[in-house]
Nucleic acid binder design. Sequence first.
DNA 1: CGCCCCCGCAAACATACGTTTGAAACATAT
DNA 2: ATATGTTTCAAACGTATGTTTGCGGGGGCG
Lengths: 213, 213
Amino acid sequence: MTQHGTVARILDTAEQLFAEKGFAETSLRSITSRAGVNLAAVNYHFGSKKALIQAVFERFLTPFCAALDAAIDRRLADTGAEQLSLEDLLALVARTAIELNARDPARGVVFMRLIGLAYNESQGHLRRYLASRYGNTFARLQRLVRQAAPGVPPAEMFWRAHFALGSVIFTLSGLAPLMAIAEADFGRRQAFDDVVQRLLPFVSAGLRQGANA
Amino acid sequence: MTQHGTVARILDTAEQLFAEKGFAETSLRSITSRAGVNLAAVNYHFGSKKALIQAVFERFLTPFCAALDAAIDRRLADTGAEQLSLEDLLALVARTAIELNARDPARGVVFMRLIGLAYNESQGHLRRYLASRYGNTFARLQRLVRQAAPGVPPAEMFWRAHFALGSVIFTLSGLAPLMAIAEADFGRRQAFDDVVQRLLPFVSAGLRQGANA
DNA sequence: CGCCCCCGCAAACATACGTTTGAAACATAT
DNA sequence: ATATGTTTCAAACGTATGTTTGCGGGGGCG
């Protein structure tokens, strides 16, 4: 990863190891030894393991949410309308996630895995933290999705949004083994974009069924 | 839980605690103390924690796969055809899962959470074990799904199946908090069946888009 | 009875973990 | 050059984990 100081090296390695093995299964010792820093550095710079985990999420999510909000603003201003189509919206999210990490295209996938882990976290500490920290952007997204599928009652749309979220997170979260299986079964190697190209219509179809227009 | 011996009590408690907190986060001591058995009983009866985890899956999955296979056979014989509709198939899976645990309706959901955890497992030991143990039933399901949506290329269907699986597992895996949010946002309490009733059309729509007939 | 085998139990064992400590190294500014 | 605040380091601490051990009880059988 990048070449800067101890803090960044810890964050880089932690992000990768957490995504590979989960939070509980990743020890601070494995992080610090791979990062080439002293064990005590984590507690010195972050305070605790829990704080490290939050810092990993923060480093990705804060710029991402800012960029996404800006992209939505821009798009709304361009079209002059007050709402976006479902495809526009989904593509916007996917594009900002990709463009924000142009140097390392795999990072978006890695991070989707982290979000999947956060959702499956037992006590939900992380879920609550993320909801309180980035709830605004998330609520805005939810509102836009609801407007993009008129005629679908809000409660129904709430569930559909989570179904869609499940598809995305689950797939991107276990992408590597899935791509290996697909390659073994169907011969040709699949690219990441192929999967996204298939994923977006799938969730669109599910989200908008029964909607007017 | 049932009233039988030590082994069953361990399995009952382990199933529940694993679903609540994950495998790594659940200690043998928490299992044995809640089950009211001695700590050493786990290693005595199962050999290791890993073997316990596999036993939990086996106790649920072996009867389930057998019942599902039988149900599919029966349905195929009834209709006289060689394939089933997508709705038939999905309903069949849901129904056997529910009917097999009529005494404890929540168990199917609990177990979906376990499957979700197994999928997110780091090294994939569990994934491999389940694939080798229950691969036959799984392959048959996959084949039937493919036949139910003619005109969709196999590779495309492979991915859509995993998208659908993601919706189901993700949703049922985190059902409790989701239902709480839904209740807070929309007032009336949602039943489990309501969610399933919404989930099935969602995945059907995504699975069959672009299919002939 | 005496033997054996299965099971339950308290205790100990070894290991891995997150965290803390105190001193050394470093940088920076006066 | 001295002093001050920050960062790094090796080592230790306390705790929790999975696993093993050795003893004891109880039921079936010769």
